[in-house]
Simulated assay, not measured.
Amino acid sequence: MQTVTLSLFRFDKPGSRFWLAGQMALARMALMGMKQVGFWKICGSGMGEGFTPQPNFTVWAILATWPDEETARRDIENAPVYKDWTKHASETWTIFLNPINSRGKWSGKEPFQPDGVMPEGALAVLTRASLRPHMAARFWGRVPDISAVIGTDPNIVFKIGIGEIPVLHQATFSIWPDTETMAAFARGNGAHGKAIKAVYDEGWFSEDLYARFRIAGAVGSWNGVDPLAKLNQIPEPVAEPDQTTEMDAA
């Protein structure tokens, strides 16, 4: 079963960020040489919630696909590129994922191998898009409203904006307690739902991808905690009282 990993690295110290500058070429060469890695991307991050044009130079990500979870865990622990990044980072967190479904392409490829098996509980969502340059202003004009909604939604377990190139190539990664909560946000009548409609009505993107994943686990911490721990803090929906009477049951 294909496993997808998203590894986040925080480089708070100036010396580590100077070291990272040389890694933009070296890490790419290392990942290309790893036989078990399929699709991969090294991404920067944004300052806000989700898509954002303002880069955050302290946080970087490596997204990769693997033939199975065992291989992913072994190589992320032992491969030199991951060990070097972890050594120089002040904090790291990796989440292990299994693709449920995927629509679209990333750099002309279909990177994920979904199995269609939906989880009963939490799931992760990755959205990625290449903006058409002449549509960039319209897109970024919508982003502040979307970011405000994402930042105040108590149901989002975790979210981060990443991307290969600021302004034009952007992605968001988010974790939700269940499918219903995620769908209500994505397709509702709010800022995000209206933006999604405009995307397809007006052709904002030259390429886009949307994928959902089951969560297989995580290692490390982010902001001092394991973000998945929040899943245990979200209350279960309150069930409606059972109105069945003895006559109904009969």
Rank of each mutant, 00 (worst) to 15 (best):
R187H: 13
E91G: 01
R103P: 00
V199G: 02
P111D: 07
K159S: 12
L131E: 01
A183C: 05
A171H: 01
G151F: 05
V143G: 03
N155F: 09
F139G: 00
K109L: 12
K105H: 12
H134C: 04
I162R: 00
H88N: 14
A195R: 01
W106K: 00
K87T: 15
A124K: 07
G193D: 02
G141P: 02
R128K: 07
L123S: 03
W93A: 01
I160M: 14
G161S: 08
P144T: 03
V199F: 15
T152L: 06
K159Q: 11
A195M: 08
W93T: 01
I196S: 10
T86A: 15
G188F: 01
W93P: 03
P119V: 02
L123F: 00
T127C: 02
G121T: 04
E120R: 15
N189I: 01
K87A: 13
L168H: 10
E180C: 05
A136R: 10
I95V: 15
R128F: 13
A124H: 06
F185N: 02
N101D: 14
T94V: 15
H88Y: 15
K109Q: 13
S90K: 12
V149H: 05
A148P: 06
L97T: 02
L168T: 12
V117D: 04
K87C: 08
V167T: 12
A124E: 04
H192F: 06
P111S: 07
I196F: 09
V143C: 01
L131S: 07
N101A: 10
I165D: 09
T86G: 11
P133A: 08
R128H: 14
A129S: 13
G193A: 02
G188V: 02
K109V: 12
L97E: 03
L131Q: 08
K87D: 11
N98R: 15
A129Q: 13
H134L: 08
K87V: 09
R103F: 06
D145R: 13
P133C: 03
A136Y: 11
P177Q: 10
Y200K: 09
A122S: 14
D115K: 04
K197T: 12
P144A: 03
W140A: 01
L123R: 06
A191P: 02
S174E: 06
S130L: 11
E180H: 08
K194F: 00
F139D: 00
D153E: 10
S130Y: 13
I95E: 07
R132T: 04
L168V: 13
D153G: 01
E91W: 14
E110H: 11
P99N: 08
P133H: 09
G104P: 06
N98K: 15
E91H: 12
I100E: 00
L123V: 02
T94L: 07
D145A: 15
V117Q: 09
G104A: 08
L168K: 03
G151Q: 03
S90L: 04
T92H: 15
Q113V: 12
A184T: 11
I146M: 09
H169V: 04
R103S: 09
A184E: 14
S174D: 05
R138G: 04
T86I: 10
K159H: 14
I156Y: 03
N98A: 14
R187C: 02
A186E: 05
V199W: 14
A124T: 01
F173S: 00
T94G: 03
I100Y: 06
H88P: 02
A136K: 06
V149D: 10
S174W: 04
G108N: 08
N101M: 11
R103A: 08
